[in-house]
């Protein structure tokens, strides 16, 4: 039995911050839950998240905004829909395997992204922050980008406005090279298409305003070693090994006692 006075204990305890419930807690490295069999699950478990401070390339702030003029939907309703059906609004050939608990603080999602040249990238994201009108995803080591992206909705002039805003650097010199030669444009296009898909789903013919600002032109050469965790290279090597894994599969099963 406790002899503590609960009222006194409550008074002595520091008040919880108003935002405490919205942030991921106690995340040191990423852990993935169950993923579908068809997904390529690489480069997520055990990785740390990385922000713009840890990245290599120039720092960009990308903002895409679209007015949902004519749609009778509140910001909270848009964000609820977006969280529930995030994958639906992504451009083709890209897969977001949502966590079982949905987009909630601290959850980890697996991504299988289509790269130019039919290459694939297996990586993930941490749900860093989520409230009723916004959520933020943060990338792990090895991802193309080091940073976070916030999806939000607000009312402006009586109209619900949806915004996607990323603050990012490429993670390593190889990704930066790709970014210089078209990757940056493709990435911006990806998020414009996402905003368009969401607006169309809500019955609005979209006109997306896009603003791309280079916040820091300097590259952080001391972070060039991030290349050792490059998820695209690792996924490529894994893909090259697919025929060998197929050939070995019957023997592996037999050893494990499977028919």
């Amino acid at each position: 039995m406790s002899t503590e006075d609960p009222v006194a204990a409550e008074e002595a305890a520091p008040a919880a911050s108003r935002d405490a419930a919205y942030w991921a807690k106690n995340v040191t490295t990423l852990k993935l839950g169950e993923v579908p069999a068809e997904a390529v699950n690489l480069n997520v478990t055990g990785r740390r998240v990385v922000g713009p401070v840890q990245g290599f390339g120039k720092m960009w702030q990308k903002t895409m905004r679209v007015e949902l003029r004519g749609a009778d939907v509140s910001p909270a309703e848009v964000i609820k829909l977006w969280k529930a059906e995030f994958q639906r609004f992504w451009p083709e050939r890209n897969w977001f395997y949502a966590p079982l608990e949905g987009i909630a603080p601290g959850e980890v999602a697996l991504l299988n992204l289509g790269l130019p040249g039919r290459m694939k990238l297996s990586t993930g994201v941490l749900v860093l922050y989520a409230d009723d009108e916004s959520f933020t995803l943060m990338t792990p080591e090895g991802h193309m980008l080091a940073g976070w992206i916030t999806f939000s909705a607000e009312t402006s002039g009586g109209v619900t406005v949806v915004q996607i805003q990323a603050l990012e650097r490429t993670n390593d010199p190889l990704y930066e090279l790709g970014y210089v030669f078209g990757g940056n444009r493709l990435n911006s296009r990806f998020w414009v298409q996402t905003a368009e898909n969401l607006a169309r789903h809500l019955g609005v013919e979209p006109q997306v305003e896009s603003q791309v600002v280079c916040v820091d032109r300097r590259r952080q050469w001391r972070k060039a070693g991030n290349i050792s965790k490059n998820a695209a290279v690792r996924t490529f090597v894994w893909t090259l090994g697919t025929p060998v894994r197929w050939l070995r599969r019957p023997f592996t099963r037999r050893r494990a006692g499977q028919p």
């Binding site: 108003r18 919205y22 702030q61 916030t150 939000s152 916040v215």
Partner: peptide, 21 residues
């Protein structure tokens, strides 16, 4: 400080870049 969301953290990163410059 009474409240900070992910947008606020972004603002601090921008402040950091400005200071480093």
């Amino acid at each position: 400080l009474e409240y900070m969301n992910s947008g606020g953290i972004g603002m601090l990163v921008t402040l950091l870049v400005r200071a480093n410059r």
